[in-house]
């Protein structure tokens, strides 16, 4: 698994742990599936909780643009891109 794949794996574990998704293992989350609504079914409070977890784990602070944040939170893959760009910048 490449570094990006490992990061995705790590984020899946973070999501399961943060949001207490007891009947789910990282392998069952598709990197491209939508986190909210029809996909994994996360809600608006989950988004806040995830924001807090990302800040704690990666020191990543979201910016104020709601539309951009929506795109970042679309899937595990988009979150991983956000974290990766934060780590290299």
């Amino acid at each position: 698994m490449n570094a990006f794949g490992e990061l995705e794996q790590e984020l899946k574990r973070l999501i399961i742990q943060t949001l207490d998704l007891p009947d789910l293992s990282p392998e069952e989350i598709e990197s491209d599936e939508p986190l909210f609504g029809e996909g994994l079914g996360l809600d608006s409070i989950d988004a806040l909780e995830l924001g807090i977890a990302l800040q704690k784990s990666y020191g990543l602070k979201l910016q104020g643009d709601a539309e951009e944040n929506k795109e970042h939170f679309f899937s595990v893959a988009s979150l991983a891109r956000l974290v990766a760009s934060h780590q290299t910048s």
Binding site: I45, A47, L48, Q63, G64, N69
Partner: peptide, 25 residues
């Protein structure tokens, strides 16, 4: 819905109408 956006948008003396779900985070 996102405090980051509120922090950016708020201008001048303000009232915030909120609830525990948001305030505690």
């Amino acid at each position: 819905l996102y405090p980051e956006e509120l922090a950016l948008d708020m201008v001048g003396p303000s009232v915030l109408v909120s609830g525990p779900a948001h305030l505690k985070r």
